[in-house]
Structure formats: structure tokens, C-alpha cells
């Protein structure tokens, strides 16, 4: 095999490898990218029914109900709010240690046909004063918090706030 043909073969092989890696990445991206949505985003433009996404906001004060499901698994129902909109979430599993009413939470799951978000994961594994950055961002977008006006208002009262006009 001459040097030229060998070089060509190696180039072809590299192209093949790179091409298949790109194709695999793009295909996997199409099916598996997980978007972060706030309750307001959901109200504005609901995603396709079978698509998993992350929903984040504050756990609405007084909304948490715990029960034991028919199969003996503990379940929890609560509402996630960004001040402007709220959405019901149902989760079967152990809630994280730092899950509290009025605290920031990020959940992963799918939206059911009944408009209830079925969470497969609930993340709240930070300290008590920590706000997940996505949640902080969602609160700002919902018009409830202008960072230039100082720290966020106490989380417990978020579900009673009404959006500021033009916020």
C-alpha cells in the first residue's frame, strides 16, 4: 500500500469516526435534551405530552399533601409556583431532606394529560438559604423580584404575591 493510499484510508477512517460521533450526538440531543421550564413558561407554551423536562419554582406554602399510594409507596402532592402561575406536582418517592414549603425546588418529570406534573426526581439538596439559579431566574422573569431592589422577598409569601404591572 502506498503512502498516499494509506493516508487516504486514515483520513477516511477519521472522517467516518468523527461523522458517526456527530450523528450520534445530534440524534441523542434531539431525543434527550432536557429543558428547564417555569410554571409561567408552561402556561404560555406547554411542551409535547411525552417530553421530559425540568420544572422549577417555589413550593407553594400550605400545598404539600403526603399520602401512601395504593401500592404502599409514599406519595407527595404539592404545587410549584413562580408567583405568576402555579402547577400541581405529584411525586412518589422519598422527598429530599431539605424539601420545605416556601423553598426553591427543581423537579424532573413529564406533564400528564390531566395537567398534573408527574415528577420522577425532586432536587432540593442544598442548604436552607440556597436558591437554585434556574429558580431565581424564573422568579425574576415572572416579575416578582428585581435583583437591583435587593434580596428576594421571603419565600413563604410567594404564592400570595400578584405580578407587578409590566413586570
Amino acid at each position: 500500500m502506498t503512502r498516499k493510499r494509506r493516508r487516504l484510508a486514515i483520513l477516511l477512517l477519521c472522517g467516518l469516526g468523527l461523522g458517526s460521533a456527530t450523528a450520534l450526538t445530534l440524534a441523542a440531543f434531539r431525543d434527550n435534551l432536557v429543558f428547564f421550564l417555569s410554571p409561567s413558561d408552561l402556561a404560555a407554551k406547554p411542551p409535547p405530552a411525552d417530553r421530559a423536562f425540568r420544572l422549577g419554582g417555589l413550593v407553594e406554602a400550605g400545598s404539600v399533601e403526603r399520602a401512601t399510594g395504593a401500592d404502599g409507596r409514599p406519595t407527595a402532592r404539592f404545587r410549584v409556583t413562580d408567583g405568576a402561575h402555579a402547577i400541581s406536582v405529584v411525586y412518589a418517592g422519598i422527598l429530599p431532606d431539605l424539601f420545605r414549603e416556601g423553598q426553591g425546588v427543581v423537579t424532573l418529570g413529564r406533564l400528564g394529560p390531566d395537567g398534573v406534573f408527574h415528577a420522577s426526581e425532586v432536587l432540593a439538596r442544598h442548604d436552607e438559604t440556597y436558591m437554585p439559579p434556574e429558580v431565581a431566574d424564573a422568579l425574576k422573569r415572572a416579575g416578582h423580584w428585581d435583583p437591583s431592589q435587593g434580596a428576594a422577598p421571603p419565600a413563604g409569601g410567594w404564592n400570595t404575591l400578584s405580578p407587578r404591572p409590566g413586570g
Partner: peptide, 18 residues
């Protein structure tokens, strides 16, 4: 300006065939 996360399903689907 889009908030997304890439989880285990992506990595499994993209690395296993390689």
C-alpha cells in the same frame, strides 16, 4: 439564553454505540 440540562439518557445513547 436557554436553560437545558443534558442527563444520563443523552450520554448513554451517544456513547454506547461507540
Amino acid at each position: 439564553g436557554v436553560k437545558i440540562s443534558v442527563g444520563p439518557p443523552f450520554f448513554n445513547a451517544a456513547t454506547l454505540p461507540l
